[in-house]
Design a protein around this nucleic acid. Structure first.
Lengths: 128, 128
DNA sequence: CAGTATCCCATGTGATACTG
DNA sequence: CAGTATCACATGGGATACTG
Protein backbone atom coordinates (compact mmCIF):
# COMPACT_ATOMS: atom_id res chain seq x y z
CA UNK A 1 0.00 0.00 0.00
CA UNK A 2 2.90 2.13 0.77
CA UNK A 3 3.43 3.75 -2.51
CA UNK A 4 6.89 2.67 -3.45
CA UNK A 5 5.80 2.80 -7.07
CA UNK A 6 5.60 6.54 -6.61
CA UNK A 7 9.12 6.77 -5.22
CA UNK A 8 10.44 4.49 -7.91
CA UNK A 9 8.84 6.45 -10.72
CA UNK A 10 9.89 9.83 -9.37
CA UNK A 11 13.42 8.49 -9.20
CA UNK A 12 13.27 7.52 -12.88
CA UNK A 13 12.04 11.00 -13.74
CA UNK A 14 14.88 12.57 -11.77
CA UNK A 15 17.24 10.52 -13.94
CA UNK A 16 15.53 12.10 -16.94
CA UNK A 17 14.07 8.75 -17.89
CA UNK A 18 10.57 9.59 -19.04
CA UNK A 19 9.67 6.12 -20.23
CA UNK A 20 7.31 5.36 -17.38
CA UNK A 21 4.06 7.09 -18.29
CA UNK A 22 1.73 4.32 -17.17
CA UNK A 23 3.71 3.69 -13.99
CA UNK A 24 3.52 7.40 -13.25
CA UNK A 25 -0.25 7.39 -13.68
CA UNK A 26 -0.49 4.32 -11.46
CA UNK A 27 1.57 6.12 -8.84
CA UNK A 28 -1.01 8.90 -8.77
CA UNK A 29 -3.70 6.74 -7.19
CA UNK A 30 -2.07 3.55 -5.94
CA UNK A 31 -1.47 4.85 -2.42
CA UNK A 32 -3.58 3.90 0.55
CA UNK A 33 -6.94 5.71 0.45
CA UNK A 34 -6.09 7.67 -2.69
CA UNK A 35 -8.86 6.20 -4.84
CA UNK A 36 -11.26 6.78 -1.98
CA UNK A 37 -10.10 10.37 -1.54
CA UNK A 38 -10.34 11.20 -5.23
CA UNK A 39 -13.81 9.73 -5.65
CA UNK A 40 -15.12 11.36 -2.49
CA UNK A 41 -13.83 14.78 -3.45
CA UNK A 42 -15.24 14.31 -6.92
CA UNK A 43 -18.71 13.57 -5.60
CA UNK A 44 -18.76 15.88 -2.59
CA UNK A 45 -16.68 18.84 -3.71
CA UNK A 46 -14.41 20.39 -1.07
CA UNK A 47 -14.02 18.42 2.14
CA UNK A 48 -12.34 19.03 5.47
CA UNK A 49 -9.55 16.94 6.91
CA UNK A 50 -11.68 15.17 9.46
CA UNK A 51 -14.40 14.44 6.96
CA UNK A 52 -11.83 12.74 4.80
CA UNK A 53 -10.47 10.76 7.69
CA UNK A 54 -13.90 9.51 8.60
CA UNK A 55 -14.30 8.06 5.11
CA UNK A 56 -12.31 5.02 5.99
CA UNK A 57 -13.02 3.39 9.30
CA UNK A 58 -9.41 2.54 9.97
CA UNK A 59 -7.59 5.42 8.34
CA UNK A 60 -4.99 6.72 10.76
CA UNK A 61 -4.24 10.38 11.12
CA UNK A 62 -0.70 9.82 10.01
CA UNK A 63 -1.52 7.97 6.81
CA UNK A 64 -4.19 10.45 5.84
CA UNK A 65 -1.87 13.44 6.15
CA UNK A 66 0.83 11.59 4.28
CA UNK A 67 -1.48 10.67 1.40
CA UNK A 68 -2.91 14.19 1.18
CA UNK A 69 0.58 15.68 1.11
CA UNK A 70 1.62 13.45 -1.76
CA UNK A 71 -1.50 14.23 -3.71
CA UNK A 72 -0.94 17.96 -3.26
CA UNK A 73 2.65 17.52 -4.40
CA UNK A 74 1.38 15.58 -7.42
CA UNK A 75 -1.07 18.36 -8.22
CA UNK A 76 -4.18 16.21 -7.82
CA UNK A 77 -5.74 18.14 -4.97
CA UNK A 78 -5.43 21.62 -3.52
CA UNK A 79 -5.57 22.80 0.07
CA UNK A 80 -7.01 26.07 1.25
CA UNK A 81 -7.87 27.59 4.58
CA UNK A 82 -10.91 29.53 5.51
CA UNK A 83 -12.12 31.21 8.69
CA UNK A 84 -15.36 29.81 10.06
CA UNK A 85 -16.58 31.64 13.15
CA UNK A 86 -13.04 32.70 14.03
CA UNK A 87 -11.64 29.22 13.70
CA UNK A 88 -9.40 28.04 10.90
CA UNK A 89 -10.97 25.41 8.69
CA UNK A 90 -8.95 23.52 6.08
CA UNK A 91 -10.54 22.32 2.87
CA UNK A 92 -9.26 19.97 0.23
CA UNK A 93 -10.58 19.74 -3.28
CA UNK A 94 -9.75 18.12 -6.58
CA UNK A 95 -7.78 20.10 -9.14
CA UNK A 96 -8.51 19.81 -12.83
CA UNK A 97 -5.63 17.40 -13.06
CA UNK A 98 -7.12 15.28 -10.31
CA UNK A 99 -10.49 15.34 -11.97
CA UNK A 100 -8.98 14.23 -15.25
CA UNK A 101 -8.23 10.87 -13.63
CA UNK A 102 -11.91 10.13 -13.21
CA UNK A 103 -12.46 8.46 -16.61
CA UNK A 104 -9.71 5.99 -15.78
CA UNK A 105 -11.13 5.34 -12.32
CA UNK A 106 -14.60 4.87 -13.79
CA UNK A 107 -13.18 2.32 -16.19
CA UNK A 108 -11.52 0.53 -13.28
CA UNK A 109 -14.79 0.54 -11.42
CA UNK A 110 -16.62 -1.04 -14.33
CA UNK A 111 -13.94 -3.64 -14.94
CA UNK A 112 -13.93 -4.58 -11.27
CA UNK A 113 -17.69 -4.85 -11.02
CA UNK A 114 -17.92 -7.10 -14.02
CA UNK A 115 -15.01 -9.22 -12.87
CA UNK A 116 -16.34 -9.62 -9.34
CA UNK A 117 -19.72 -10.54 -10.75
CA UNK A 118 -18.12 -13.32 -12.76
CA UNK A 119 -16.07 -14.48 -9.79
CA UNK A 120 -18.94 -14.60 -7.31
CA UNK A 121 -19.84 -17.92 -8.87
CA UNK A 122 -16.52 -19.23 -7.63
CA UNK A 123 -16.56 -19.23 -3.85
CA UNK A 124 -12.89 -19.91 -3.52
CA UNK A 125 -11.37 -17.22 -5.68
CA UNK A 126 -10.26 -15.04 -2.81
CA UNK A 127 -8.87 -17.68 -0.53
CA UNK A 128 -5.13 -17.65 0.10
CA UNK B 1 5.20 -1.79 -4.35
CA UNK B 2 4.40 -4.72 -2.30
CA UNK B 3 0.83 -5.15 -3.10
CA UNK B 4 -0.90 -4.75 0.20
CA UNK B 5 -3.85 -3.31 -1.69
CA UNK B 6 -4.33 -6.79 -3.06
CA UNK B 7 -4.30 -8.38 0.38
CA UNK B 8 -6.58 -5.71 1.74
CA UNK B 9 -9.11 -6.11 -1.06
CA UNK B 10 -9.10 -9.91 -0.96
CA UNK B 11 -9.77 -9.65 2.76
CA UNK B 12 -12.81 -7.46 2.09
CA UNK B 13 -14.07 -9.98 -0.44
CA UNK B 14 -13.63 -12.79 2.06
CA UNK B 15 -15.86 -10.79 4.40
CA UNK B 16 -18.42 -10.74 1.59
CA UNK B 17 -17.94 -7.01 1.20
CA UNK B 18 -18.04 -6.48 -2.55
CA UNK B 19 -17.95 -2.70 -2.45
CA UNK B 20 -14.37 -2.43 -3.64
CA UNK B 21 -14.56 -2.85 -7.42
CA UNK B 22 -12.06 -0.13 -8.30
CA UNK B 23 -9.67 -1.20 -5.53
CA UNK B 24 -9.88 -4.74 -6.82
CA UNK B 25 -9.01 -3.62 -10.33
CA UNK B 26 -6.15 -1.56 -8.95
CA UNK B 27 -4.92 -4.63 -7.10
CA UNK B 28 -4.69 -6.50 -10.38
CA UNK B 29 -1.82 -4.40 -11.71
CA UNK B 30 -0.40 -2.38 -8.84
CA UNK B 31 2.25 -4.91 -7.92
CA UNK B 32 5.89 -4.54 -8.78
CA UNK B 33 6.46 -5.34 -12.49
CA UNK B 34 2.82 -6.21 -13.15
CA UNK B 35 2.17 -3.44 -15.65
CA UNK B 36 5.42 -4.35 -17.34
CA UNK B 37 4.51 -8.04 -17.44
CA UNK B 38 1.03 -7.44 -18.82
CA UNK B 39 2.20 -5.08 -21.55
CA UNK B 40 5.08 -7.32 -22.56
CA UNK B 41 2.91 -10.40 -22.81
CA UNK B 42 0.35 -8.41 -24.75
CA UNK B 43 2.90 -7.32 -27.32
CA UNK B 44 5.05 -10.44 -27.46
CA UNK B 45 2.59 -13.25 -26.86
CA UNK B 46 3.81 -16.14 -24.71
CA UNK B 47 7.11 -15.59 -22.93
CA UNK B 48 9.40 -17.73 -20.83
CA UNK B 49 10.30 -17.04 -17.22
CA UNK B 50 13.78 -15.80 -17.95
CA UNK B 51 12.62 -13.57 -20.76
CA UNK B 52 10.23 -11.93 -18.34
CA UNK B 53 12.89 -11.50 -15.73
CA UNK B 54 15.19 -9.82 -18.20
CA UNK B 55 12.53 -7.18 -18.88
CA UNK B 56 13.47 -5.25 -15.83
CA UNK B 57 17.11 -4.76 -15.12
CA UNK B 58 16.75 -5.15 -11.40
CA UNK B 59 13.92 -7.65 -11.11
CA UNK B 60 14.91 -10.31 -8.64
CA UNK B 61 14.02 -13.93 -9.12
CA UNK B 62 11.96 -13.90 -5.96
CA UNK B 63 9.82 -10.91 -6.85
CA UNK B 64 9.22 -12.16 -10.37
CA UNK B 65 7.96 -15.56 -9.22
CA UNK B 66 5.82 -13.93 -6.58
CA UNK B 67 4.23 -11.52 -9.04
CA UNK B 68 3.60 -14.25 -11.60
CA UNK B 69 2.00 -16.46 -8.97
CA UNK B 70 -0.39 -13.72 -7.93
CA UNK B 71 -1.31 -12.94 -11.50
CA UNK B 72 -2.06 -16.61 -12.18
CA UNK B 73 -4.18 -16.73 -9.04
CA UNK B 74 -5.99 -13.60 -10.23
CA UNK B 75 -6.59 -15.20 -13.61
CA UNK B 76 -4.66 -12.61 -15.58
CA UNK B 77 -2.06 -14.96 -17.01
CA UNK B 78 -1.72 -18.67 -17.58
CA UNK B 79 1.28 -20.93 -17.27
CA UNK B 80 1.99 -23.92 -19.42
CA UNK B 81 4.90 -26.24 -19.94
CA UNK B 82 6.27 -27.56 -23.16
CA UNK B 83 9.12 -29.87 -24.09
CA UNK B 84 11.81 -28.27 -26.20
CA UNK B 85 14.55 -30.70 -27.21
CA UNK B 86 13.88 -32.86 -24.17
CA UNK B 87 14.01 -29.95 -21.75
CA UNK B 88 11.02 -28.48 -20.00
CA UNK B 89 10.23 -24.94 -21.03
CA UNK B 90 7.68 -22.84 -19.16
CA UNK B 91 5.61 -20.24 -20.95
CA UNK B 92 3.38 -17.52 -19.59
CA UNK B 93 0.69 -15.75 -21.54
CA UNK B 94 -2.17 -13.35 -21.02
CA UNK B 95 -5.64 -14.75 -20.51
CA UNK B 96 -8.69 -13.02 -21.97
CA UNK B 97 -9.23 -11.50 -18.55
CA UNK B 98 -5.70 -10.17 -18.53
CA UNK B 99 -6.10 -8.77 -22.00
CA UNK B 100 -9.30 -7.02 -21.00
CA UNK B 101 -7.21 -4.75 -18.77
CA UNK B 102 -5.41 -3.28 -21.77
CA UNK B 103 -7.88 -0.45 -22.47
CA UNK B 104 -7.41 0.79 -18.92
CA UNK B 105 -3.64 0.52 -19.18
CA UNK B 106 -3.69 2.34 -22.50
CA UNK B 107 -5.69 5.12 -20.89
CA UNK B 108 -3.14 5.30 -18.08
CA UNK B 109 -0.38 5.48 -20.64
CA UNK B 110 -2.00 8.39 -22.43
CA UNK B 111 -2.80 10.27 -19.23
CA UNK B 112 0.78 9.84 -18.02
CA UNK B 113 2.33 10.95 -21.28
CA UNK B 114 0.26 14.08 -21.41
CA UNK B 115 0.87 14.87 -17.76
CA UNK B 116 4.62 14.33 -18.00
CA UNK B 117 4.70 16.52 -21.07
CA UNK B 118 3.06 19.32 -19.13
CA UNK B 119 5.36 18.79 -16.17
CA UNK B 120 8.58 18.79 -18.16
CA UNK B 121 8.35 22.56 -18.17
CA UNK B 122 8.73 22.45 -14.41
CA UNK B 123 12.17 21.14 -13.54
CA UNK B 124 11.39 20.69 -9.91
CA UNK B 125 8.23 18.64 -9.98
CA UNK B 126 9.90 15.38 -9.09
CA UNK B 127 12.16 16.61 -6.36
CA UNK B 128 11.48 15.28 -2.86
C1' DC C 1 15.86 -23.44 -16.99
C1' DA C 2 12.43 -22.69 -13.48
C1' DG C 3 11.72 -22.63 -9.51
C1' DT C 4 11.66 -22.98 -3.59
C1' DA C 5 13.50 -21.84 1.02
C1' DT C 6 15.96 -19.15 4.40
C1' DC C 7 18.09 -15.39 6.47
C1' DC C 8 18.13 -10.53 7.51
C1' DC C 9 18.07 -5.67 7.04
C1' DA C 10 15.45 -1.51 5.53
C1' DT C 11 11.18 0.50 5.38
C1' DG C 12 6.21 1.31 6.22
C1' DT C 13 2.86 2.29 9.30
C1' DG C 14 0.11 2.11 13.75
C1' DA C 15 0.00 4.10 18.40
C1' DT C 16 0.82 7.75 21.11
C1' DA C 17 1.96 12.22 22.63
C1' DC C 18 2.59 17.13 21.66
C1' DT C 19 1.54 22.01 19.20
C1' DG C 20 -1.06 26.24 17.67
C1' DC D 1 -9.56 21.23 14.21
C1' DA D 2 -5.44 20.22 11.69
C1' DG D 3 -1.60 18.98 11.99
C1' DT D 4 3.90 17.26 13.45
C1' DA D 5 7.24 14.14 15.86
C1' DT D 6 8.83 10.00 17.94
C1' DC D 7 9.02 5.28 19.01
C1' DA D 8 8.35 0.26 18.11
C1' DC D 9 7.02 -3.43 15.69
C1' DA D 10 5.64 -6.04 11.50
C1' DT D 11 6.42 -6.70 6.86
C1' DG D 12 8.56 -6.46 2.25
C1' DG D 13 11.91 -7.76 -0.47
C1' DG D 14 17.11 -8.45 -1.66
C1' DA D 15 20.84 -11.85 -1.44
C1' DT D 16 22.07 -16.30 -1.37
C1' DA D 17 21.95 -21.17 -1.48
C1' DC D 18 19.57 -25.41 -2.79
C1' DT D 19 16.44 -28.66 -6.00
C1' DG D 20 14.74 -31.32 -10.10
Amino acid sequence: MTDTIREYTLEKLRQKDFDCAKEYTLAMFSGKYKLLIICSLYHNGAMRFNELQRLSEHATHKMMTQQLKEMIKDGLISRHEQLISHRKAVFYQLTNTGESLMPIIDAMCQWGEKRLQDLKLDIDFCSD
